[in-house]
Design a protein around this nucleic acid. Sequence first.
DNA 1: TTGTGTGCAAAACCTTTGCAAATGT
DNA 2: ACATTTGCAAAGGTTTTGCACACAA
Lengths: 160, 160
Amino acid sequence: MCQSIVTMRLTRKEIAEMIRSRGYRATPQRVAIYEAVWRAGSHPTVAEIYEYATKSDPSISLATVYNTLHLLEEIGLVQELSARDGSARYDPDVHFHINIVCRSCGKVVDYEYKPLDKLAKDIQEVTGFGITVPVFEVKGLCSDCRAENQETAIASVREM
Amino acid sequence: MCQSIVTMRLTRKEIAEMIRSRGYRATPQRVAIYEAVWRAGSHPTVAEIYEYATKSDPSISLATVYNTLHLLEEIGLVQELSARDGSARYDPDVHFHINIVCRSCGKVVDYEYKPLDKLAKDIQEVTGFGITVPVFEVKGLCSDCRAENQETAIASVREM
DNA sequence: TTGTGTGCAAAACCTTTGCAAATGT
DNA sequence: ACATTTGCAAAGGTTTTGCACACAA
């Protein structure tokens, strides 16, 4: 089976080429930050990306991390997730999928849902919105946090 | 056809009762802020809610708006949207639907999608996430902003 | 060589917090 | 009456900005 280029990890050379082809300069910082989005854990926060990127080059500044993440989003290499708590999270997986975000601990898991292609097409027809961003998001409570909330609820009842 | 209680606008009395039934005090500020979420435009920002609420009671503070919005979300009367730009937006429509967010101008439109109920159930089975929050979100570009971007793109080409 | 990109520090912005005074029940 | 809630102002955290220097093309 064949994956689209945007769903697989790119080499440094490919990353650099992709950046140049859009008219931007392929600096080592930009390549390092793109790699950090892949490697700094699953759906890493800006802080995590910054921490990881500075491991390979301690001189990289936080401002450059922000600049570069915006650039990478602009050229379609990463996607900013929308959860509002704390620092932004980025997803280097830019094929159509659903991100399920725990509204208690912030954990994000991916969910495959085939009809997303057709849904995006229908949305465009009905609303005129072009779904340029292939990531859908839903908030919920992960099983860990649900267990915890259950305990808290019981504790509250006991207090009364 | 019958709407569920959470999809229709509640009276002041019903709002107050809902708040009290959850063990909280039904202050005039809370009622005014809930009304402001309905009336301050579609999917209003905190700033818009604050502005609208202070029209009916100029003494309401921004801190109270934040406190109250969190409370209203907690008891299921409103839903915080996730777009990260600027101040948070709130949706008083808490039945299952998709919010389509323009990533250029921030406009939000609602989209009905029947399979969301089953999708939420499937997600829970597969991932263990309880989808407590009935709002799904997708980012895209609204038709206005697409037209504008088109112009910008053409302008850029012309500049070269 | 030249204009783009970087790093630094300060500013801007949104949200939360602490506390005394006010108020709903 | 009394715990909860409010308003104010200050603090906190994240992101953006301005500018001199560095560097990719």
